[in-house]
Structure formats: structure tokens, C-alpha cells
Amino acid sequence: MHRFANPARFLRLAKVILPWSNAIAVLCLGSGLYFALFGSPADYQQGESVRIMYVHVPSAWMGMFCYTAMAVFSAMALIWKHPLADLLAKATAPVGAAFTFLCLLTGSLWGKPMWGTWWAWDARLTSMLILLFLYLGYMALVNAFDDPERGHKAAAILALVGAVNVPVIKWSVDWWNTLHQPASVVKMGGPAIDSSMLVPLLLMAVGFKAYWISILILRGRAEIAGQKIRVIRMAQIHAASQGE
């Protein structure tokens, strides 16, 4: 695993992957949007409002997926001192926060016409809001120290402690009474949803994953360059103080 810890190797790998992740994101999101908006039927109960599902559900999956990825990267950073793991966790956080925000917002826009309310303090919605706060807390903490090492360590611990929220979100609809409907795609016995709706849902989900990989590469590159800049600046300060 430490073979991939080398920034030079990451940068080389990133260069190969980036055009592919970009292409997959554009193709999947383009076709996904077409099927979501025009190529899929309206729901017999919810009418055209069901189209919000194709943004809402993949965003919710991404919110949980990115948090899980962030927790795994953080664990790798804490246990094996993997130097890239911190950077990847830090790079994932804004993507996860964006999708969690989108999930909450689109859920609100779907809840108003269907449930008659923008918001309800029930288990699924509240645990998702906590996820957003965990992301925001992580992002604030990771940048709160002058020494980036300390910021990474503190934020990694927060990410791991907060990971308990992910299974709570997943099973909140089974554990508590809630307005939110239970799972219909990721469940025992296969998805209970027609393929005309499953296709755009999966296209959007794959497109969002590819988008995450592209952003991870871009932000990873920025972080690696930032680290090198810090090293050079430190050396300059050191040289200047010795030159006096």
C-alpha cells in the first residue's frame, strides 16, 4: 500500500486517471440528466416531482460514501502514518459536504409538495444534518492549526468518531418511525424500483463517483504542491537566517 504513498507516484497515476474520470463523469451525468428529466416516466403517486429523486438519492449516497472514504483515509493516516491519506481525506471533505448539502436541499424541495413540510426533525433528516455538521467541523478543524500535521491529526480523530453516524443514517428509517420512506434500491432481495427509474439513478450515482475522483485528483494535486511550497519556503527562511 505504501507504494501509492509516494506523491510522485500519485501524480503519475492521477495524470492517467483524470481524463477517464472526467469522461465518465460527463457521459454519465449527461445521459443521467437526460433520462432523469425526459426519458423516465412520472410516478403514479408523486407525478413529476419524483424527478427530484435522481438528484436527491445519489447525493445522499455520495454524502455517506464520501464520509466513509474520509474515515478510511483518516484511519490509514493515523495507523500507518500514510502521508497521502491525510491529503485524500482533506480533499474528500468538501465534496462530501456539497453532496450532503444537496441531499438536504433537494429533500426539502421534495418534502414540501409530498409531505407538506420543508423539514421534519425525524431520525433520517436529523442524522443527515449531523453529517453535514461533521463535514463542516472537519473542514474547520483541519485548517485550524498553524502546523498542518496537527490539523490533520485532530481532524482525522473527528472523522473516525463521527463515522458512527453513517450506519445510523443508513438504518434510521428502520430503527425509528419517520416520514422518510425506507430503502428501495440498496436492500435485501434486490431493488424494488422499475428499471426505467433505476437507470437514471445509477447513471447519476456513477457520474457522481467519477466527479468525486476528478475532484480528489485536483485537490490532491493542490495539496501536494502546497506541501512542496511550504518545504521550499521553510528552506528559504532557514537559509536566510543562516546567511545573516
Binding site: L37, G47, S49, R51, I52, L105, W110, I215, L218
Partner: peptide
């Protein structure tokens, strides 16, 4: 959108705006 136009289009509009913003900032 069968009367749900405001909800559906705002959901997609904000979705695209947020993802584009994260992309531009990262780039």
C-alpha cells in the same frame, strides 16, 4: 412539470450550481 416545476427545476439548478462551484474552486 405537472405543477412541480418550481421544485424540480430548483433542485436541478442548485445541484448543478453547487457541483460547478466545487469544480471551479478545486481547479
Amino acid at each position: 412539470m405537472g405543477g412541480y416545476g418550481g421544485y424540480v427545476w430548483s433542485a436541478y439548478g442548485v445541484g448543478i450550481a453547487v457541483l460547478a462551484l466545487v469544480l471551479v474552486l478545486s481547479l
